[in-house]
Write a protein that binds this DNA or RNA. Structure first.
Length: 898
RNA sequence: GGGCGCUUAGCUCAGCGGUUAGAGCGUUCGGUUUACACCCGAAAGGUCGAAGGUUCAAAUCCUUCAGUGCCCACCA
């Protein structure tokens, strides 16, 4: 059987084949009636507008690793894909596109605009799904969902109506955050705060009927047109006699009262505060208390309106400049003080938000929050890492009502109708045809849509068919774990917890793993708009998806953000290539083996591995026993790591095993045996090599699906099998575990490494085989060395090795000593006495320090009483060894000197 | 104004109570060993941000401080 295998791994040649294979078949189709414990992850639905960015890549890598890992371990697995309509983001994208064509979306009208967005979605909205297929995510595409589909829209409506019926949704007139660019209100969460250097303008307000002034400090002089009072603290002696008097409002001819309110901080500014109820949340409250008029001086897009007199039509920031200039001219500007304060910015447009009074729909959160808080407190939802749990709890305890309505057109329209006759509000599952109170047919639907996070909040159960008791819902809900970035803990995770528990009576997920954010070198969150984002699709092409996945996984330690670097990607790619070449070695040499007449069938049955001590004639060779023991250790470590979301630890363990143990030691060790004239030995070697490689591929598969799928299909024992993704995850069986083999092999490695070190230090020709001498009082070590002499001679590049129990003569040769043995390469003329004694002195120094600290500890009574026995025993035996070593080094040093 | 992280080898980061602190990259030295130069072998390099404390034992726990980053917060 001829095999063509390229010298270097070329992902482009491999990936598309398997990506298509995985996405097109029913390989990852979940069957609720199939056996196995359920494992379900719903995707954090990416925006339809989006293309895959590095954050998704991390999300999806972690999700897919866990999914594949569970699938291979026999779970009934569902990874459910889908997208979010992303109200405000998507609307912005299309609005901007229209603007580029010279079209104002408002002129288009609602219906036409929404039609355009749908059209846009059909044409350009599938990018992420395409990319997800391309990178081989093992999701069930037959269950793909979209938050604004008719199916999920029905669920949204059901939930809204129920909450309304439960009096948890209400309408109210409040001071809101308004974005003058997006033209909608925003929830508190959608407002970012940024410290900005600004000014505090001290403005003189003339007191009516006097030549005195009251000086008011403000950061927003342009809102003066909306002032309806000046407030002072009632306890403030400076202003006591002015309370109740009137002041003339500069830039206008209005007179406004001076009022007393304890809200005013005497210490801040001048202690006098202008009250602008229409443009500041605190002023709004003060205004309510004092029954002040509310004068809105701005338009919805942040310009001054007719209440601002000659300022009408000016942009709010231009108006500020003009007001300051005018006040200065009129001598009413007392002074300008530098003042840094936090301004609120729209999360999407980064515009300074404007406080604005309006009537909106709200969701009362206390009732919803309590059980969701309790679920996390009681651990029904496990939250990882722990510090995020604290954040969640704190936020939940201080939760405020959620503004649901948005003045947008793209989204779930609020199912509320107002009667034109009597204003009665109808909220219903089906569109009403008449007012329930007066029968009027003149009903007008609320123009607003719901916050996009409202439908996302239903995602874990809406996607599984709720409110119907579908097979999916029964089988896969609650979902197993939610994996997402911590930046949407409040936006999304908290709301899913609340709505999930409220409507289904069960938590929506048993665990939440909040992963790191991928940042740029300077610590910022990567962002495409800032040009600091890395395009994962391009990087996947360049380095391979498997390398990217491995790289991200290996950096994804819980709780810390990660900075993706070229170096790490290169390292990951090298690892992929290393495995590829290991396979190449196997396959290329397999042909030679086959040429000797052995059949594939022989290899197809992996070596039957009787539990037997190694080294016994006819049983398993030491290196094989060691390899499988290491494999078992690695499997256990990987499983443990993945159970706790230590992706980096799993990646590290597998890397170490595959590269360090399998390639560097095992393959090198067994090379001659594979070619052995002894057919029996060769067969055992081949079988074990393939059995181990097969297990190692399966071990690696969740992290590197493409490479492992490709190579797995080429394994002789997998001919005709369907996919490694459906194969079993390797199990660390009892007969693989072998502490004795680990220990013995480790001794042989020490010998070989020591020989290499001596050679390297002596600058011996790497190809020159030399004689060496080994001495140890331990008969077991000597026997082991004799049993494995071929490999030791070959890997140590020796012509012969004398093994004895006698002490070696120390002088005039390169010698290395451990507590157990001495090794010597007798080439007196090449020993650099000076360098050697420097090296030895340094070693003695380190060793002495270690010995002293141990001696001190061991002679400490309290330590002996309190430390665990094992610690003491280990320390004692280690101290013993170090003393022997020190003794040997000291002897050697003195001999060198003489 | 509150809260949460981070500071470990030249770089990027693991380790988070128990033998002389690890990895990858980089550096130095040596290698064209027919699986792999995206490689192989060897080495150098750290008083674990600072100061106190707890403990038999501290990079690891506590306190303070210094840098640095993030989140939350309606004082003009």
């Amino acid at each position: 059987m001829a095999r063509e295998i390229a010298k270097a791994y070329e992902p482009q040649l491999i990936e598309s084949k398997w990506a298509e294979f995985w996405a097109s078949g029913d390989l990852f189709h979940a069957d609720p009636s199939a056996p196995g414990p359920a494992f379900c992850i719903v995707i954090p639905p990416p925006n339809v507008t989006g293309s895959l960015h590095i954050g998704h890549m991390l999300d999806h890598t972690e999700i897919d690793i866990l999914t594949r890992w569970h699938r291979m371990r026999g779970y009934n697995t569902l990874y459910l894909p889908g997208t979010d309509h992303a109200g405000i983001s998507t609307q912005r994208v299309v609005v901007r596109q229209l603007a580029d064509q010279g079209i104002n979306y408002r002129d288009l009208g609602r219906e036409e605009f929404v039609k355009r967005v749908w059209k846009w979605k059909e044409e350009s909205g599938g990018t992420i799904q395409r990319q997800m297929r391309q990178i081989g995510e093992s999701c069930d595409w037959s269950r793909e969902k979209f938050t604004l589909s008719p199916e999920l829209s029905r669920v949204v409506r059901e939930v809204f109506v129920r909450l309304y019926e439960e009096n948890l949704i209400y309408r109210a007139n409040r001071m809101m955050n308004w974005c003058p660019v997006c033209l909608t209100v925003l929830s508190d969460l959608e407002v970012l705060h940024e410290e900005r250097a600004g000014n505090l303008w001290h403005v003189k307000y003339p007191v009516v009927g006097s030549d005195k002034f009251i000086i008011v400090a403000t950061t927003r002089p342009e809102t003066m047109f909306g002032d309806t009072a000046v407030a002072v603290n009632p306890e403030d002696e400076r202003y006591k006699d002015l309370i109740g008097k009137k002041v003339k409002l500069p830039l206008t001819d209005r007179e406004i009262p001076v009022i007393a309110d304890s809200y005013v901080d005497k210490e801040f500014g001048t202690g006098a505060l202008k009250i602008t109820p229409a443009h500041d949340p605190n002023d709004f409250e003060v205004g309510k208390r004092h029954d002040l008029p509310v004068i809105d001086v701005m338009t919805d897009d942040g310009h001054m309106n007719s209440n601002a007199g000659t300022y009408a039509g000016l942009d709010r920031f231009a108006a500020r400049k003009k007001a300051v200039a005018e006040l200065q001219e009129q001598g009413l500007l007392e002074k300008i003080v530098d003042h840094t304060h936090a301004v609120g910015l729209c999360e999407r447009s980064k515009t300074v938000v404007e406080p604005r009074i309006s009537t909106q729909w709200f969701c009362a959160m206390k009732t919803l929050a309590e059980p969701a808080l309790a679920a996390v407190e009681r651990g029904e939802i496990q939250m990882i890492p722990e510090n995020r749990r604290q954040e969640y709890l704190f936020w939940m305890r201080n939760i405020r009502d959620w503004t649901l309505s948005r003045q947008l057109w793209w989204g779930h329209r609020i199912p509320a109708w107002y009667c034109e006759e009597n204003g009665h509000v109808t909220v219903a599952r089906e569109d009403p045809s008449a007012c329930a109170t007066c029968g009027s047919k003149e009903l007008k639907q609320d123009p607003d849509v719901l916050d996009t996070w409202f439908s996302s909040g239903l995602w874990p159960f809406s996607t599984l068919g709720w409110p119907e008791k579908t097979a999916d819902f029964e089988r896969y809900y609650p979902t197993s774990v939610l994996i997402t970035g911590y930046d949407i803990l409040f936006f999304w995770v908290a709301r899913m917890a609340m709505l999930g528990i409220h409507f289904t009576g069960k938590v929506p997920f048993r665990a939440v793993y909040l992963h790191s954010l991928v940042r740029t070198g300077s610590g910022e969150k990567m962002s495409k708009s800032k040009g600091t984002g890395l395009d994962p699709v391009a990087l996947n092409l360049q380095y391979g998806t498997d390398a990217m996945r491995f790289c991200l996984a290996s950096m994804a330690a819980p709780g810390t953000d990660i900075v993706l670097s070229e170096d790490r990607l290169l390292g990951a790619r090298a690892f992929v290539n290393k495995i590829w070449n290991a396979a190449r070695f196997l396959f290329v040499n397999l042909e030679k083996y086959e040429q000797t007449g052995a059949s594939l069938e022989q290899l197809a049955a992996p070596g039957v591995r009787a539990k037997a001590p190694h080294g016994v004639a006819g049983k398993i060779p030491l290196a094989d026993a060691w390899l499988f023991a290491r494999l078992a250790e690695t499997i256990e470590a990987a499983n443990k790591a993945l159970e706790t979301y230590y992706f980096h630890e799993a990646a590290q363990q597998i890397y170490q095993f595959f590269w360090g143990d399998f390639c560097d030691w095992y393959i090198e060790w067994v090379k001659p045996e594979l070619q052995s004239a002894n057919a029996g030995r060769a067969e055992v070697a081949w079988k074990n090599l393939f059995a181990a490689f097969d297990a190692a591929l399966r071990l690696l598969h969740p992290v590197m699906p493409f490479l492992t799928e490709e190579l797995w299909h080429q394994l002789p024992q997998k001919q005709g099998a369907k996919s490694i993704a459906l194969d079993a995850y390797p199990v660390a069986t009892e007969n693989w575990k072998n502490a004795a083999a680990l220990k013995e092999f480790s001794f042989l490695q020490d010998v070989i490494k020591t020989l290499r070190e001596i050679r390297s230090q002596m600058k011996l020709d790497p190809k020159k085989k030399v004689k060496a001498e080994f001495s140890s009082a331990d008969a077991g070590l000597r026997a082991s060395l004799i049993a494995n002499l071929d490999a030791v001679l070959r890997l140590g590049i020796l012509s012969e090795l004398n093994i004895s129990a006698d002490r070696l003569e120390q002088s005039s040769a390169a010698v290395r000593s451990t507590a157990q043995f001495d090794l010597r390469i007798p080439y007196s003329d090449v020993v650099d006495v000076g360098g050697e004694s420097v090296r030895i002195k340094k070693e003695i120094e380190g060793l002495s320090k270690a010995i002293q600290s141990k001696e001190k500890q061991l002679s400490n009574e309290t330590f002996r009483n309190r430390a665990p026995e094992k610690i003491i025993k280990d320390m004692e035996s280690s101290l013993g060894e170090q003393r022997i070593e020190l003794q040997k080094l000291t002897n050697r040093l003195s001999q060198l000197g003489s």
